[in-house]
Nucleic acid binder design. Structure first.
Lengths: 142, 142
DNA sequence: GTAAAGCCTAGTAACGCAATAGGAAATAGA
DNA sequence: TCTATTTCCTATTGCGTTACTAGGCTTTAC
């Protein structure tokens, strides 16, 4: 699996926060309930996002999380790379196998490189605002 | 990781067999040595390929493996899907999560579907003969 | 001071991956 | 017919990662 629950949850949470931007800071409890994710597990994920300055968290009464940038300035790729560690489709491209002794002669390496670029380019081309449902979270009355 | 050693080895082995087609049946021992893969582990992988009729195996002295079709009739996608079980980038698209209770409202589902299509389309567009090094394995004398 | 919230460090159960083990069955050639 | 060679088959094991859980500390507003 290229993307595990951690990455998937992170993305859903970011969309959730984008949709509820207008409400100000949103406590973890609320996000967890809305998204059906365990509160404790979500803590880990949010901590990662905060440490990377993608979210700002504030403690205490009235605290919670908000995006640090407008939704159109987040790409799906960066969110997933952060939470997953890497989006490389094969270990060969990912630290571990760096300089696999066979890489010079490997007939399949180009396939992996192309695939990697395809995946990253696509995910870097999708921004958070594109995933926000139109008017979701706003109660416009005409 | 989208593709594990099983799939990577399988692909390398298929290329190896394509390159050495002219030699007739090739014993596992020879492939394992050439590719630097454990013989016992390779057994599993080749068994999978044989069961799917992508290779033909023959026992006994003079036995070994050969492709059942010309290299241009194999796609990388089908080889990997067989050996990996699936190339879905997220569990949501893959049996397990089929009909995730949230799929109706999931804002990220389209991203995964598009990514899945991108990956599969690319890999289904690459055929084995495209990975065979020019003239590799043939000793043409002009 | 207290309730509400985030922050931090561990711990754990289950699973899948990578590989190994040991032998049975088939085949060709001496 | 015996033997070396080779594939085929079923288990098992070690190990790392994933998905979560536990418990306590710190900050903040009222």
């Amino acid at each position: 699996m290229l993307v595990s629950t951690k990455g998937r949850y992170a993305l859903r949470v970011m969309v959730d926060l984008a949709e509820h931007q207008a409400t100000g800071r949103i406590p973890l409890k609320e996000i967890a309930a809305r998204q059906g994710i365990s509160e404790k597990y979500l803590e880990n994920i949010l901590a990662t996002l905060v440490r990377a300055n993608m979210l700002s968290g504030m403690r205490g009464k009235g605290g919670g999380y908000v995006l640090t940038r407008p939704p159109e300035q987040y790409t799906v790729g960066e969110i997933l790379r952060l939470t997953e560690g890497s989006l490389a489709p094969v270990a060969c491209l990912d630290g571990d196998c760096k300089g696999c002794s066979r890489s010079d002669e490997c007939p399949t390496l180009d396939v992996w490189k192309n695939l990697d670029k395809l995946i990253n380019d696509y995910l870097d081309g999708v921004t958070l605002d594109q995933l926000v449902a139109p008017n979701e979270g706003y109660d416009y009355v005409i």
